[in-house]
Design a binder for these strands. Structure first.
Lengths: 223, 223
DNA sequence: AAATAAATGTAGTGACAATTACACTTTTAT
DNA sequence: ATAAAAGTGTAATTGTCACTACATTTATTT
């Protein structure tokens, strides 16, 4: 696919030369951090195929040798950046408690938070990367993103809807599907525009959320 | 970004060497068709960056020279394939008449048709291509796809919802936003699974459609 | 402070792939 | 049938990159 002349590794043994080392102290840690920073900038701006490892090193200082010792290869560097940013983006969301008031308020709070996460420049950049790169060969990247992002959102909201259903407050056949559908109502309409470079106004997000809640609640509230 | 050694064209004159020629008769047309066929296969399987022009010619027969005369360059070939397949996929959908019965039946018919279009292997492949390739630089590809696909769907359903609103049958603030939200409810939940290689069962599609209609109609039907 | 380990900088290497050149053959139109 | 146009096959050109090698400098540890 892409050029990868280093894969002469005749797959016999577990291949230890690719083991990314971890620098323990001081200078090494700074270099590592700087490399990650610059790499992030490049990957976010130009995509995986579009960034050159040489460029990163040229900009970050340090040496190719160091980069390869730390991250093994280009994909290793990418994965490191990706995991870091994905955690940064989704972890706070996953630990938030949305369910303290009435259903409408709760949906509103959840929706606003989700919209905020997916609207952030980093959120958009990560999404583009996940969808855009390494996509014709199955990679771990996708799994990580999917589990930490979309799947977590569906689980959190789905659990809540399930409870409301059990209490007889909502009339829903499949609460987890419903969760996914609600989520799509509030972020789906902006997917293409975002991918295609348009910027979304705060007010549009708000309107989508308002209308989604109106339709959704009206649609499944037990009377 | 990608390698493109041919762009030595000092931009002075309108550059006529890149003008893709159109073969008028017989053998040329067949070659062209064969090239497009093989190119489609490769682009659909390996993505833009992942396919090699040389490979295409090797498999399709004919000569590099011919390919370049017809399509100008790799991107030209890609665009040709892309337009062809996008038209093929969306044009029938755009000319269908969904609105002959009651609202629920109409939504059902529309939804089923839309799900069919987006579930087809070509539909998925095209979507992947649009999202996956040529995405860090704005390209015409995206515009074509967006207009012919998503935007058309929203317009068709949105027009209908608007009419229903005007007749006082539906209670909706923004019918076009609502259209987009309905569409997302029935295809959004399958986006990631599809991108990540899962196959979707007929029955899942059906359930999503059923529940979406239930929530949506219940949610905005004028009582 | 000496020995050991890590980091640097520069300069390769090897592959791959888009595009062009060219000499030659086949088709098509006059 | 014959000249012009289009098509073919092969090989060369040119760039770009990931990745490696190595000789040298800097930091860390005992």
């Amino acid at each position: 696919m892409t050029q990868n002349p280093a894969n002469q590794s005749t797959d016999k043994e577990p291949v230890e030369q690719t083991k990314p080392e971890v620098s323990t102290n001081k200078r090494g840690l700074e270099r590592r951090k700087k490399l990650l920073e610059v790499a992030e900038k490049h990957f976010f701006s130009f995509g995986y195929a579009g960034t050159s490892v040489n460029e990163i090193v040229k900009e970050a200082g340090g040496s190719l040798n160091t980069l390869y010792r730390y991250f093994g290869n280009k994909l290793g560097l990418f994965e490191a950046v990706f995991k870091l940013k994905t955690d940064e983006l989704f972890t706070p969301f996953a630990h938030m408690d949305f369910w303290q008031d009435d259903i409408e308020t709760n949906l509103f709070r959840f929706g606003e938070c989700l919209q905020r996460v997916t609207s952030t420049p980093d959120g958009i950049a990560i999404y583009r990367l996940v969808v855009t790169e390494n996509n014709f060969e199955q990679s771990e990247i996708q799994r990580i993103f999917y589990q930490l992002g979309p799947q977590t959102g569906i689980r959190i909201l789905g659990d809540y809807l399930q409870r409301m259903k059990d209490k007889g407050k909502l009339d829903l056949e499949d609460p987890y599907l419903a969760a996914s559908q609600f989520i799509e109502m509030i972020k789906g309409p902006f997917l293409y525009p975002r991918l295609f470079g348009e910027t979304i106004e705060e007010q549009q997000l708000h309107q989508a959320l308002k209308q989604a809640i109106h339709i959704f609640l009206n649609g499944c509230l037990q009377k």
